[in-house]
Design a protein around this nucleic acid. Structure first.
Lengths: 180, 180
DNA sequence: CGCAATTCAATTGCGCACAACTTAATGGTG
DNA sequence: CACCATTAAGTTGTGCGCAATTGAATTGCG
């Protein structure tokens, strides 16, 4: 198990607000939004791990199943577009889902480059047991639906901005980026 | 490279708000807060990867360096508490940082179970070059400091709630958790 | 003191994320 | 039709993240 107290992380105060924050302030761990994001993401992972255990799924496997439950049969490429994952991640993951008997992979007849992922009966049936997962997750967050939605909207905007920046590294060098 | 369009993820609408959401609604991928969180976390990772490349650090390595720059010499245990990481992750990571010449590890004289992580001169010097990282990240997010802080506060509360839930799995079974 | 329980770091094993590369099929152009 | 660029999956290699285990040092308790 991982430690459960994180001294300083959530309590340290920034430079008093009457002064402009310095570079050093920005370097402070507790100022790092990315750290909070990363921590929240891993905390979610921990909860999902517990909840998904009796479905026999990991969290990324669960995401793939969600996509298939929503859209039915899809080529690997499309699954990847929905989840932002490439074949390097999906190929072995799908192989494990296939071994578990939840999906089948079939090379497309019309385009033999692509592989279509189908749900097996067992995979389809698993959805019934998965139905209660989101409510359990919601309970674990202790947050209301309103707050969750707003947080999600914020995160999606952030992701879009970051994706745009990653595609245009020059933008990262914008000298005097106004962050205050 | 990973795909850059994610059809349906951010556009699909929930059940009309005059009706209570069904379990099926909750299962919809675009309803999954965790997905947004995960996506944002990985998007951050992508931006950090670009920015940290010329420091020769990965993002988790950068986090460790942040902790050391802020606190100076620390036992592995303390580093792990700050970052929520255990020795299974830290031991090999620290070994790589040591190979890179940024840190030194020394077994404590007073308690020979613990290993203290020190910055080398090179590790200390790297801080100067890291000072501009946070501003570049901030620029990439396209968000202002206010928004970032608020998001961070929300995420930290979320993480705390999730940690609490993970430590008490029974709470996850709260039957009619009110999420609306 | 003596011995069991605890603590710390390291190791092992598995799965994911991602870059880089390979292989095979497709499609467009001359 | 021949050739080449493009596209889809898969493969390889590196580095986390975490559970589980190991081994050594320390602490606590009778």
């Amino acid at each position: 198990m991982v430690g459960k107290s994180y001294p300083g992380v959530m309590t340290a105060m920034p430079t008093p607000s009457t002064q402009a924050p310095s570079d050093g302030d920005y370097l402070r761990l507790d100022q790092q939004i990315c750290f909070s994001l990363n921590a929240a993401s891993r905390a979610f992972g921990g909860v999902y791990r517990v909840i998904l255990k009796d479905l026999g799924l990991t969290y990324p496997q669960y995401l793939v199943m969600l996509v298939l439950w929503e859209h039915g049969e899809l080529p690997v490429k499309k699954v990847g577009e929905h989840l932002r994952l490439d074949s390097g991640t999906l190929s072995p993951l799908l192989k494990r889902l296939e071994t578990a008997g939840l999906v089948r992979r079939e090379r497309s007849a019309v385009d033999e480059r692509s592989v279509h992922v189908h749900l097996t009966d067992e995979g389809t049936a698993l959805r019934e047991r998965a139905l209660r997962v989101p409510r359990r997750i919601a309970a674990a967050t202790g947050a209301n639906l309103e707050e969750i939605r707003e947080l999600q909207a914020r995160l999606d905007r952030l992701t879009a901005a970051l994706d745009a920046a990653a595609l245009d590294p020059a933008a990262l060098d914008a000298a005097g980026a106004d962050v205050s």
